[in-house]
Write a protein that binds this DNA or RNA. Structure first.
Length: 562
RNA sequence: GCGCCUGUAGCUCAGUCUGGAUUAGAGCGCUUCCCUCCUAAGGAAGAAGUCGUAGGUUCGAAUCCUACCAGGCGCGCCA
C-alpha cells in the first residue's frame, strides 16, 4: 500500500515539475499520529524553499493533481495544513490484512533449512561452578528471540552455548574446594556449594595458590582435571534444568576449554603476522593505534586468556559453519573487549571478521543502581526468580479456578511465569541497564506477559463459542476495528525492524499495543450475534494468529485458556 | 584521567538511529466508574511532565551539534 502512495505522489509531483526518486519519497512518507489524519501522510515543508510558496498552498495544489488520477485504492486524499493525507480504502485493506494474517501461519517454518544462510548466536554462556544469574538470563532470552526472528526472516540460526569452563577462576574453585569443600555438600547442591567455596577462595592471600592450580589444569594435571570434570558435569546438569524450564534449546554446546588445544597454532599465526609483542612479561597485540588499548593473548605464566580462547573459537566456527553473521549476545560491559577481538581477527586477515557483531545488553543493577558483583558473592539466583514467579502464578490461578487439578495447575503456572519473565525482560530496550526489582519482575497486570496471554485467551474463547464458518463481507467498519486492522498490517515491518536493530523489544512493544487494541475492540464491538459476526470472527482469528507468531518470536508460548 | 552508555510524570519505561501536525505516550501507584454484557490477569475517565542544564543548527528540536552537571560501565595479565 505504501508503494501505491509513493507511486501516486511521484506522478503528481512530476506534474509540478518536481522530480524525486521513489526512495526519497519513501523517506518522507509517514504514518500520521492518529487515524483521523489518514493512513499515510506526505509533508510539504521541504518544497517550500524550492517553490517559494507556503507549504500548505503546495499541499493543496499537489492534492488537486492527485485527485485527477483514478483513485481505486483510496477512500480520499485530503490536506491538513502542510500535510497531504491519504485515506486508504479501509474495507479493502481490512479484507486483505485479515486474510493474510489468517493464512500466514502456513509461511512459518518452511523446510528449506539446508539452503538457508547461517547466523551463529553465541549466547547464554553460563560459567561452570557459578550460579546461573539474571545476567545469563538476559543473554539467553534475547539470543533465543533473535534466533527465532532470524528463522522467521529466512535465515538458519545456530544457537551456540559457549560454556565458560576455563580460566583462572577454575584455579580458584579447585583450590577453594580442596581447602573448604565437602563431597556431601557438593552433591546436594553443587552450584551453591562451589560458589561459596569460590567466594571464600577469592582473596588476595590465596591468589598465588589459585594461579598454580589453573596452571596445573592447563598442563593437564590429573587431580586438577578430575575435579574440573566433576564440577563441569554437575554444573551443566543444573543449567540444563533451567533451560528446560525456560524452554530454550541449543543447537551446539561449545566450551572454552576446547579452544585451548588449538591455541598454540593460533599463537604461531599471530607471530607469523607480526602482531604479537612481549610486554611486561605477557604476549599482547597492541591496538593503541586503533584506539583500542591492548589485547592480552598469553599471560606471564604462559597460560591462555579469555581473548585467545575466543579468537581460536571464532576461527574454528567460521571454518565449520561459513556463517554470514556471528552474533555475540553478551553484556555491554564487554563492548571494548569485543572491539578488540574483532580487530585482532581483522588484522589476522580474516575478512569475515566484519560479519561479527557484539549485540550487547544492559545490566541488571541492584537497588542502589550498582552492578551485581558475582565475584563478591552478590547475585540473584535464577531458581529464586522462577520459584517466586511460579508460586505467584499459582496463587492467581487458584483465585479463579480453585479446583484445578495439580498437574494442570503446575503446567499453566509455569507457562504464565515464563511469559512474565520473558516479556518483562524483552520489553526493555536491550542496551539499557535496568534496576532489578523482583516485584516488578513478577507483576501480572498492565504491560506484562500475562496481560498479553490473557488477551490471546480471550480471543480463543470467543472463537470457541461459535460454529459460524461463513465467509465474511464487510458492511461497516468501526473505528476500533480499523485501528486493529492497521496494527495487524504492520507486523512484518516490525519484525524486519527488530532484526535490523537486533532488538526484540520492538516486537514486545508491538505485541502490547496490539493486545491493547484488541481489548478495546472487544469491549466496544460485540462479536457473537452481531450483524458483522463473520467479519469480526475473522478479525479475532487474524489477531490471534498474529499475536501467536509475535509471542513465538519472543520465545513465549500462548495459552488457549487463562 | 580517558572512552562508551544513560538522564522523559512519584516510580519503571516507550518515543531519540531516519527532526515535523492535535493535548510528549504507556504501565505501576493515586481518585472515580463498569461484571443480569463473548474470562474484571480486563475496559472507561481523572490528577500528575521546565523531555538533566545552558547554548547552537533549523521554517520546526525530547529527537541533530557543542559545553556543562548527574549516574552507570569499561580502560594489561578476571571472564
Amino acid at each position: 500500500m505504501k508503494a501505491k502512495v509513493i507511486n501516486i505522489l511521484q506522478k503528481a509531483l512530476k506534474e509540478k515539475k518536481i522530480k524525486l526518486k521513489k526512495e526519497e519519497i519513501e523517506k518522507l512518507v509517514e504514518v500520521p499520529p492518529s487515524i483521523e489524519m489518514g493512513d499515510y501522510a506526505f509533508p510539504c515543508f521541504f518544497l517550500a524553499e524550492k517553490l517559494r510558496q507556503e507549504p500548505r498552498q503546495i499541499a493543496l495544489e499537489v492534492r488537486e493533481k492527485i485527485r485527477k488520477f483514478p483513485l481505486t485504492d483510496f477512500d480520499d486524499v485530503q490536506t491538513k495544513g502542510p500535510y497531504i493525507n491519504f485515506f486508504l480504502d479501509r474495507k479493502g485493506l481490512a479484507r486483505k490484512v485479515v486474510w493474510e494474517a489468517i493464512t500466514q501461519k502456513k509461511n512459518y517454518g518452511r523446510s528449506d533449512a539446508g539452503k538457508r544462510k547461517k547466523i551463529i548466536f553465541d549466547m547464554s554462556h553460563p560459567n561452570i561452578a557459578k550460579p546461573f544469574g539474571v545476567g545469563h538470563l538476559r543473554s539467553t532470552i534475547i539470543g533465543n528471540s533473535l534466533a527465532n526472528i532470524c528463522e522467521f526472516r529466512g535465515f538458519k540460526p545456530v544457537k551456540l552455548n559457549y560454556l565458560g569452563d576455563w580460566g583462572t577462576q577454575f584455579g580458584k574453585v579447585i583450590f577453594g574446594f580442596t581447602k573448604f569443600g565437602s563431597e556431601k555438600k557438593l552433591h546436594k547442591d553443587p552450584i551453591k556449594h562451589l560458589f561459596s567455596v569460590y567466594v571464600k577462595a577469592n582473596k588476595k592471600t590465596y591468589e598465588k595458590k589459585s594461579r598454580e592450580w589453573f596452571k596445573k589444569l592447563e598442563q593437564r594435571d590429573k587431580k586438577a582435571l578430575m575435579l574440573w570434570k566433576v564440577f563441569s558435569e554437575l554444573s551443566l546438569n543444573e543449567f540444563e534444568k533451567i533451560y528446560k524450564i525456560l524452554g530454550v534449546k541449543f543447537d551446539v554446546y561449545a566450551r572454552e576449554s576446547e579452544a585451548v588445544r588449538d591455541s598454540k597454532k593460533i599463537i604461531q599465526e599471530l607471530k607469523a603476522r607480526n602482531l604479537l609483542k612481549k610486554s611486561e612479561g605477557a604476549q599482547i597485540v597492541d591496538l593503541k593505534k586503533h584506539n583500542l588499548g591492548v589485547c592480552i593473548i598469553e599471560k606471564t605464566d604462559g597460560t591462555t586468556t579469555y581473548a585467545l580462547r575466543d579468537i581460536v573459537s571464532a576461527i574454528k566456527r567460521y571454518k565449520q559453519y561459513k556463517f554470514v553473521r556471528m552474533v555475540y549476545e553478551v553484556g555491554q560491559e564487554q563492548k571494548l573487549y569485543f572491539k578488540q577481538i574483532f580487530k585482532v581477527l581483522e588484522l589476522m586477515g580474516y575478512k569475515w571478521a566484519k560479519n561479527c557483531v557484539h549485540v550487547d545488553h544492559g545490566l541488571y543493577l541492584d537497588k542502589d543502581g550498582k552492578k551485581f558483583a558475582t565475584r563478591k558473592g552478590k547475585t540473584i539466583f535464577m531458581e529464586d526468580i522462577l520459584d517466586n514467579t511460579i508460586s505467584l502464578a499459582k496463587k492467581e490461578i487458584k483465585k479463579r479456578e480453585p479446583k484445578m487439578p495439580k498437574t494442570k495447575l503446575e503446567e499453566r503456572a509455569l507457562k504464565i511465569a515464563i511469559a512474565a519473565i520473558f516479556y518483562g525482560d524483552l520489553k526493555n530496550n536491550r542496551s539499557n541497564n535496568m534496576v532489578f526489582d523482583i516485584k516488578r519482575f513478577v507483576a501480572f497486570e498492565g504491560d506484562t506477559g500475562p496481560y498479553i496471554l490473557y488477551s490471546y485467551a480471550r480471543a480463543s474463547s470467543i472463537l470457541k463459542k461459535t460454529t459460524n464458518q461463513d465467509k465474511f463481507k464487510i458492511l461497516e467498519l468501526e473505528e476500533k476495528e480499523f485501528e486493529l486492522v492497521k496494527k495487524l498490517s504492520l507486523f512484518s515491518e516490525v519484525v524486519e525492524d527488530a532484526l535490523k536493530h537486533w532488538n526484540p523489544s520492538l516486537i514486545a512493544n508491538y505485541s502490547y499495543h496490539l493486545a491493547q487494541l484488541f481489548n478495546e475492540f472487544y469491549h466496544t464491538c460485540p462479536v457473537i450475534g452481531s450483524k458483522e459476526e463473520a467479519f469480526r470472527l475473522a478479525l479475532v482469528e487474524a489477531f490471534r494468529q498474529t499475536l501467536k507468531n509475535a509471542m513465538k518470536l519472543l520465545g513465549i508460548e500462548v495459552l488457549e485458556k487463562m
